[in-house]
Simulated assay, not measured.
Amino acid sequence: MEEAPEAPAASDGSSEESSDRSSDEGDGAAAPVKKGERKHLPVWQESILLLGIALVLAVVIKTFFVQAFYIPSESMEPGLIRNDRILVQKVSYWFGGDPSRGDVVVFEDPGSWLTGEEPAPTGLANVLSKIGLYPTGGHLVKRVVGIEGDVIECCDDQGRILVNGEPVDESPYIAKNHGKCAAVFEGSCDWSVGPIPDGMLFVLGDNRSQSADSRAHMCGPDVETCAKSPWIDTDLVVGKVFSLVWPRDRWDWISNPGVFDGVPDDPPAGD
């Protein structure tokens, strides 16, 4: 019996594909990009993108979290001296939080408090100041000694101010050259002010003899009508000073000294 001839093998095109691959490899053509691979940007484009992100982050940080300032005068010596660079944090006063007695705060000029002309930054410094990377001026730095409802009096036999009838020992930070009276007003240690209106603050410099603070905007006892106001609106407060960052050898944290902790919430009856 004759055997049937074998059927020809089915062609699945593998030989052709092999031939095509060999041909492609021989031509030196680039392999196709694998699915899912990302094409990298040129270095110059990546640099611009990163710079843009950094600028946006700097603006956000300045607006909502931290901002740099410099000390414009001698009013906060000895703790802060002229041209010191400080950092101010804004988070403490979010969500209805207000400055506390003893806080060192930076605030906008409420009107005619700044004395003299401060040089404005120029060139690159001006650009950096807009995004919070260079210390700015045009603001004041003082210590909060009175909040809404408080009555401030000057002074007891030791030259200490009284807040709501309680004498306050400010020796941890106040300048030593103030003499007997730590809060001189028009050469007298006999004055009082308050109660402080809602949403307002009474502020003093630590260097009381060299500070044009709330005392400089009080009306004298014999003045019948006065357009001045010693108060700072809490809405003008930029934030609380938390660090001295320059010069480097003076770097330090700035915190509330706690000397007002014993002050009662309300003034004595009759004030």
Results as ranks from 00 to 15, higher is better:
1 M>L: 09
7 A>C: 07
9 A>P: 15
10 A>V: 13
14 S>V: 13
16 E>R: 08
17 E>Q: 11
22 S>F: 08
22 S>Y: 05
30 A>S: 14
31 A>Y: 11
40 H>K: 14
41 L>T: 02
42 P>V: 08
45 Q>L: 14
47 S>E: 08
53 I>W: 06
53 I>S: 10
55 L>F: 14
59 V>T: 13
59 V>S: 11
60 V>H: 04
62 K>P: 00
63 T>G: 11
66 V>Q: 00
69 F>Q: 02
70 Y>K: 00
72 P>Q: 10
74 E>N: 13
76 M>R: 04
77 E>D: 12
78 P>Q: 03
82 R>K: 15
83 N>D: 14
84 D>Y: 03
86 I>E: 01
87 L>W: 09
89 Q>H: 12
91 V>E: 05
91 V>T: 09
92 S>T: 15
95 F>H: 07
96 G>Y: 00
96 G>T: 09
98 D>Q: 14
98 D>F: 04
99 P>H: 10
99 P>V: 14
101 R>A: 07
104 V>R: 01
104 V>I: 15
104 V>C: 02
108 E>D: 15
109 D>Q: 13
109 D>F: 13
112 S>H: 09
113 W>L: 10
113 W>N: 08
118 E>Y: 07
119 P>L: 08
119 P>H: 12
120 A>H: 06
122 T>W: 04
123 G>S: 03
127 V>H: 03
128 L>F: 13
128 L>M: 13
128 L>C: 07
129 S>H: 03
129 S>N: 05
133 L>I: 08
134 Y>K: 00
139 H>R: 10
139 H>N: 14
140 L>Q: 06
141 V>W: 01
142 K>D: 02
142 K>R: 13
143 R>S: 08
145 V>G: 02
146 G>I: 15
146 G>L: 05
147 I>P: 00
148 E>P: 02
149 G>E: 01
149 G>Q: 02
151 V>A: 06
152 I>T: 08
153 E>F: 05
156 D>N: 15
157 D>S: 14
158 Q>M: 10
159 G>D: 07
160 R>K: 12
160 R>I: 01
162 L>C: 05
165 G>W: 07
168 V>F: 07
173 Y>T: 12
177 N>G: 12
181 C>W: 08
183 A>L: 05
187 G>A: 08
191 W>Q: 07
195 P>M: 11
196 I>K: 03
198 D>Y: 04
198 D>E: 15
201 L>A: 07
203 V>R: 04
203 V>W: 03
209 S>L: 13
210 Q>D: 13
210 Q>S: 14
211 S>R: 02
213 D>K: 02
214 S>P: 03
214 S>A: 12
216 A>T: 08
218 M>Y: 03
219 C>N: 05
221 P>M: 10
224 E>P: 00
225 T>D: 11
229 S>C: 09
231 W>A: 09
232 I>N: 01
232 I>E: 01
236 L>V: 03
236 L>S: 11
237 V>T: 02
239 G>C: 06
245 V>K: 04
248 R>I: 15
252 D>P: 00
258 G>H: 05
259 V>R: 06
259 V>T: 15
259 V>W: 04
260 F>L: 04
262 G>M: 03
262 G>S: 13
262 G>I: 02
262 G>A: 15
263 V>A: 09
263 V>S: 03
263 V>M: 10
266 D>C: 01
266 D>P: 00
269 A>M: 08
271 D>K: 12
